[in-house]
Design a protein around this nucleic acid. Structure first.
Length: 560
RNA sequence: GCGGGCGUAACUCAGUGGUAGAGUGACAGCCUUCCAAGCUGUACGUCGAGGGUUCGAAUCCCUUCGCCCGCUCCA
């Protein structure tokens, strides 16, 4: 989330409690496993929420895959080309090794609070020292100093090669005493000027857990700044097959993107797509969040809409900017048009080591205000992922671009082989829904219906409602007919409601809370002149149109 | 992970040791020709869960689950 310091003056934040109450009351969002007391970090969608979410997902699919960027040309002057893909939640475990997810976050990690350095707890090699004439040291006590390394032997090598580090830690003159056994290495050296025996070995986990406050930091040599080893099990573990042994461990994906990289060649080889092109994947992902918080914002199960757009390295910067700008426009057009939406370019020190540009589309949620929360990240990932998968799988990921290379005598091109670069607009579907709910929620005490949901008609779960003003004089029959006509035409996009119960004001109010943009009312005049009133949700205003024009009116408003 | 707050009807909440309540909403009927209007009626509760104290617990104690807030964390 963004530091609130550099934000513009914000309007009074909406009450998250009120939004959550409405979500429950009207069936947008329920707590998962509600009758059992709920389960931390999981939320379900009710009837209106499920349709709202589907409409947002469909909008992404349409505007990113089927007709990318509303039919606009890309920076190369050509229409943008994208194809869909659907990959599994469970992938081969090696996929997550290649992507870096397993290595980075499946081990207990220790942080150094002073330097912000982080390392795997089992990579902390300690030097256990004892005076030269005393019995040989063991790993029972506290290490005199520590080094981050995967093996004791490597730790000694690091020390030997790094004069600066030796000085920092106060050690010098390393000489092996005995051949290193597995997991340990005994050396003679000077520590803070005194000759000692130093046993290099992994700091036992029990020692680290109990004494983390007294163990010297590998970055400063001083104790007191290390944190307790903490398990970052952000990957959901499961077992494939019925035996559930260690060999059968698999993970639920933490992102959909890797499925795309895995199939990059398959798609390129089978669909006649030509560089540049994108592959989109929508699906559920899982992260064992440390702290699920803020309604659905940080859920443990969530849905992503990810596009990986592949292009020639030379064109990657232009495409990065293109996607970044388009994605911002897209969210605006979907209904987040106000000043609560910002595009934020990451600072250099925020970037991953392989990325040469990342932006976030961020929304000012009531619970982040005056700061912002991430809706989507647009990252220039270079060729990092394809390189990783090429390395780990052994499969060749190079693309043969037949539109590049020198011109041959026959007029064709020689072709150029390269690893494409990749631009990744990765959006959170559930976060998008939440942002839309927050943006749509409006409170206006001066209205007969003070609370209402100002959904963009394209995503509104209920597209229109038809009411007979009163339940007699043939009005219900006319309403039923109009309702049937609208349903037949628009059922693919959302619900068309028909309601003759209660007073008209109550029915309008009900639709306002559900975010239905238009209500059509059959009244006495309808029977005489074949017109109905259209009541606008946001203004409460009315106009009369011919009953035969209603369908076209709706189609126009919902952008069909 | 730490600290604070909360949990009673679909929603908002009252009830602090003695028969579980109100408003709103929902539903049915009447009425009603455009904005939660009116009248009548109906339904809706494991008082978050488990245990303890007590003659008796929504209420006191312990445990636990969930949500919210603040720190922390967030590849």
């Amino acid at each position: 989330m963004t530091d609130p310091a550099n934000t513009t003056a914000s309007p009074a934040p909406k009450s998250m409690d009120a939004i959550m109450a409405l979500c429950k009351r009207r069936g947008f969002i329920f707590q998962a496993s509600d009758i059992y007391g709920g389960i931390n970090g999981f939320w379900d969608y009710g009837p209106l929420g499920a349709q709202l979410k589907k409409n947002l997902r469909d909008a992404w699919w349409q505007d990113m895959i089927m007709r990318p960027c509303w039919g606009a040309n890309g920076p190369n002057g050509q229409p943008v080309r994208c194809v869909p893909l659907e990959t599994r939640i469970i992938q081969h475990p090696k996929v997550w090794e290649a992507s870096g997810h397993v290595a980075g976050f499946n081990d207990p990690m220790v942080d150094d609070k002073e330097t912000k350095g982080r390392f795997r707890a089992d990579h902390l090699i300690g030097a256990f020292c004892a005076p030269i004439d005393a019995p040989a040291p063991t790993t029972a006590g506290l290490p005199a100093f520590t080094i981050v390394s995967s093996t004791p032997g490597e730790a000694v090598t690091i020390l030997t090669d790094d004069k600066k580090l030796r000085k920092l830690l106060g050690v010098d003159g390393l000489e092996p005493v005995a051949a290193s056994s597995s997991g340990q290495a005994l050396f003679k050296c000077e520590y803070k000027g005194k000759p000692v025996h130093a046993l290099f070995a992994q700091v036992p986990m029990e020692t680290l857990k109990a004494q983390f406050g007294n163990i010297p930091s590998p970055f400063t040599g001083k104790p007191g700044s290390l944190t307790e080893p903490r398990q970052f099990n952000l990957m959901f573990k499961t077992y494939v097959g019925a035996t559930a042994s260690q060999d059968d461990i698999a993970y639920l994906r933490p992102e959909t993107a890797q499925g795309i990289f895995v199939h990059f060649k398959n798609v390129a080889d089978t669909t006649r797509v030509k560089m540049p092109f994108g592959i989109g994947n929508v699906g559920t992902s899982f992260r064992n969040e440390v702290t699920p918080r803020n309604f659905t914002f940080r859920s443990r199960e969530f849905e992503q809409m990810e596009l990986e757009f592949f292009c020639h390295p030379d064109e990657s910067q232009e495409w990065y900017k293109f996607w970044r700008d388009f994605r911002m426009e897209w969210w605006k057009r979907i209904g987040l048009a106000g000043e609560n939406l910002i595009l934020r370019e990451h600072d250099k020190d925020e970037l991953s080591h392989y990325s040469c540009g990342t932006s976030d589309v961020e929304y000012r949620f009531p619970f982040t205000a005056p700061g912002f929360g991430e809706l989507e990240g647009i990252a220039h990932r270079g060729n990092f992922d394809l390189t990783q998968h090429q390395k780990h799988s052994g499969a060749k990921m190079e693309y043969n671009d037949t539109e590049r290379g020198e011109i041959l005598p026959n007029g064709g091109r020689r072709g150029e082989r390269y690893l494409p670069h990749c631009i990744e607009p990765a959006a959170g579907l559930d976060r998008g829904v939440l942002a839309i709910l927050c943006e749509a929620y409006t409170k206006d005490e001066s209205r007969p219906s003070p609370e209402f949901m100002k959904f963009n008609p394209r995503v509104a779960p209920i597209k229109a409602a038809v009411f007979p003003l009163v339940g007699k004089d043939g009005m219900p029959e006319v309403a039923d007919k109009l309702h049937a006509e609208l349903s037949a035409r628009f059922w693919r996009l959302g619900a068309i409601e028909c309601d003759e119960k209660q007073t008209i004001g109550k029915r309008y109010a009900r639709m306002d809370e559900a975010g239905c943009p238009f209500c059509f009312t059959i009244d006495g005049d309808t029977l005489k002149d074949q017109t109905v009133t259209v009541r606008d949700r946001d203004t409460g205003g009315q106009q009369r149109i011919g009953i035969d024009k209603v369908s076209a009116f709706v189609a126009d408003k919902i952008g069909e």
